[in-house]
Nucleic acid binder design. Structure first.
Length: 569
RNA sequence: CGGGAUGUAGCGCAGUUUGGCUAGCGCGCUUGCCUUGGGAGCAAGAGGCCGGGGGUUCAAAUCCCUCCAUCCCGACCA
């Protein structure tokens, strides 16, 4: 391919709409253009990258026994009503009607379709297990599409569904996908971690998210710093380790103190001269069923995902000032568990604090020397708080480290949720009808492309890992008017192509600086420069994008050395 | 959905406060000359429903109403 034939419109300035680096660079380097919020056209350079990622995915899925198919994007409402998700999925589901006023959804995911397929085509244990996947556009009407390709409304996703006879089979399929995903992201040249994640109030037991570590990530992950310990979890999931309370403290006399205008933990701590560790923070939450009081230590934060799981509720929200007053009788900042007439959920840690400070459910008043059991009863004790960096690893006890991550993949054990809802049963050897046991496994392809940029860039532009670069080498003649240079450039280009290396010849009649800037911006791993400097010599000048290093390679070793270099990038 | 901001040429912006000459600048684009190892220079050009609609006015990019779009923060996210 020659640059004069390639549609790769680079921009000198950063479009005002782009905030995160991957979005800026994808626009500037001519990979994507926005059509409307969260919807993009992928230009030829992006398409080449996506094809490579897809190819890697296909190879790894197929290696594990996956079979590719293609399902419809337009899905009938009836199927979604059958699974119950027509209502549950909410406004995020794009809906449309046909000319007969029949309702449809644009597929945000394909559990319904694939389960419907399996229920009609699979009827015997002999047909199981099955691993079926597709790579296709997905549609989710995000409330707030943002960050370019990191959160779009239309995006490309690989989704695989596993069908097994039982949970043991599911475990095997799950492990296969765990391995496949590890290989996919490794081959894409990404620094990532599989992390334990929360599976939600309903649904399967296990789930892992594959996180690309990057500061722009929306997810917070905690992982163990100890070499060899592979504990890593989404902050929503990370379990707290109970450090032995250790205070064999005797409960002292409960008493009330006046604390005018002292609301926050910091204020209480300073005013009463107690550490936040001795304060029990009481927060009121409303679920679809009830109001609950949640107790956590003063220096901790409530983890709403864990809380929802502990309560077995679907929706959860922090109560407003009105509810707080009607439940506690006091303004916000003075709630406490003593004599409070709602369900009380205490965090594991908070439940052990003796002689604590709490709100008194009375304006401008706190209680001191509050002790659980004696002064109030707890309905549920559970891990309902956020774990913070520095806390012990649940597996080995070493300190946890916090990092931001971009979720590029998730593997999930569904169990029989969809097979039962949609009626996908098979007959076992004894002729008994059983639900197919399912798993689902997604990779955000377009998000992976953006994540790769988030992780691999510098002030000059993108630095593609060689495996997914749009072209592996760009050949730049300094002056296309110099016949000798052009002839040399053509020769190098042809040799690289013949050697199976994806080369691009920058034959534009531009000045060298312009071509260099574009090459850096687009991020080809290697650049071969053909100019007066090296023309007469027996060496070819090769520059490594990642390091800026310039190598003089003997002409007759060119193909081999470039192949070697690419292998290391 | 709550809060904030912005819509003027392909991109980045000025002009709007205080209505008034033919709507500007930089980059990019076209043509020519010149130049050619990190976004050169000179010259001549093309390119605008000033987001849409309605209103006020002798006169609207500018004031008013309304709709739309885009971005940011938050909430939300199988």
């Amino acid at each position: 391919m020659r640059t004069t034939e390639l549609l790769a419109p680079t921009l000198r300035e950063i479009p005002a709409e782009a905030e995160v680096i991957s979005h800026q660079l994808l626009l500037r380097a001519g990979f994507i253009r926005r059509e409307t919020a969260g919807v993009y056209t992928y230009l030829p350079l992006a398409m080449r990258v996506l094809k490579k990622i897809n190819q890697i995915i296909r190879e790894e899925m197929d290696r594990q026994g996956g079979q590719e198919l293609l399902m419809p994007i337009i899905q009938p409402a009836e199927l979604w009503q059958e699974s119950g998700r027509w209502d549950v999925y909410g406004p995020e589901l794009f809906r449309l009607k046909d000319r007969h006023n029949r309702e449809f959804a644009l597929g945000p995911t394909h559990e319904e379709i694939i389960t419907a397929l399996v229920r009609s085509e699979v009827s015997s244990y002999k047909q199981l297990p099955l691993l079926l996947y597709q790579i296709q556009n997905k549609y989710r009407d995000e409330r707030r599409p943002r960050f370019g390709l990191l959160r779009g409304r239309e995006f490309i996703m690989k989704d695989l569904y596993s069908f097994d006879r039982d949970y043991e089979g599911l475990q095997i399929s799950y492990q296969k996908m765990h391995e496949a995903y590890t290989q996919v992201f490794r081959r894409c040249g990404l620094r990532f971690r599989p992390v334990e994640a929360d599976s939600g109030a309903i649904g399967g037991s296990d789930t892992h998210e594959f996180m690309v570590l990057a500061d722009s990530g929306e997810a917070v992950v905690l992982f163990c710093r100890k070499e060899g310990c592979d504990y890593a979890a989404n902050v929503e999931k990370a379990a707290q380790v109970i450090v032995a309370a250790g205070h064999g403290e005797e409960p002292k006399l409960l008493s009330e103190v006046s604390t005018p205008g002292v609301h926050t933990v910091e204020e209480v701590s300073a005013f009463l001269n107690v550490t936040p560790q001795k304060i029990i923070k009481t927060l009121l939450y409303e679920t679809e069923k009830e109001v609950v009081a949640v107790l956590v230590r003063g220096d901790r934060e409530v983890n709403e995902v864990k809380l929802a799981n502990a309560l077995g509720c679907l929706h959860l929200k922090l109560s407003g000032a009105d509810t707080v007053r009607s439940v506690t009788g006091a303004q916000v900042g003075f709630a406490g568990p003593v004599k409070l007439n709602v369900k009380i959920v205490a965090d594991l840690e908070a439940a052990t604090i003796v002689n604590a400070v709490t709100g008194a459910n009375k304006d401008d008043t706190h209680l001191i020397n509050v002790s659980p059991a004696r002064d109030f009863s707890i309905d549920i004790v559970a891990d309902v708080r956020m774990v913070q960096a520095g806390e012990p690893c649940p597996r080995c006890g070493e300190a946890l480290i916090e990092a931001k991550g971009i979720e590029v993949g998730q593997i999930f054990k569904l169990g029989d949720k969809y097979s039962k809802a949609l009626g996908a049963f098979y007959l076992d050897e004894s002729g008994q009808s059983r639900p197919v046991i399912m798993g689902c496994y997604g990779i955000g392809v377009t998000r992976t492309m953006a994540a790769a940029i988030e992780q691999n860039n510098d002030k000059d532009g993108i630095i593609w890992p060689a495996a997914i670069a749009p072209f592996q080498v760009v050949v730049v003649p300094i002056s296309v008017k110099e016949e000798q240079q052009m002839a040399a450039a053509e020769d190098v280009y042809n040799r690289l192509i013949a050697a199976g290396i994806e080369a691009l010849l920058d034959d534009r009649p531009e000045r060298a600086g312009v071509k260099f800037k574009d090459a850096d911006l687009i991020g080809y791993p290697l650049r071969v420069t053909i100019g007066a400097k090296s023309l007469g010599s027996k060496q070819v000048e090769v520059r490594v994008r990642k390091t800026g290093e310039v190598l003089m390679i003997p002409n007759d070793e060119l193909e081999n050395r470039i192949g070697e270099l690419l292998g290391g990038l």
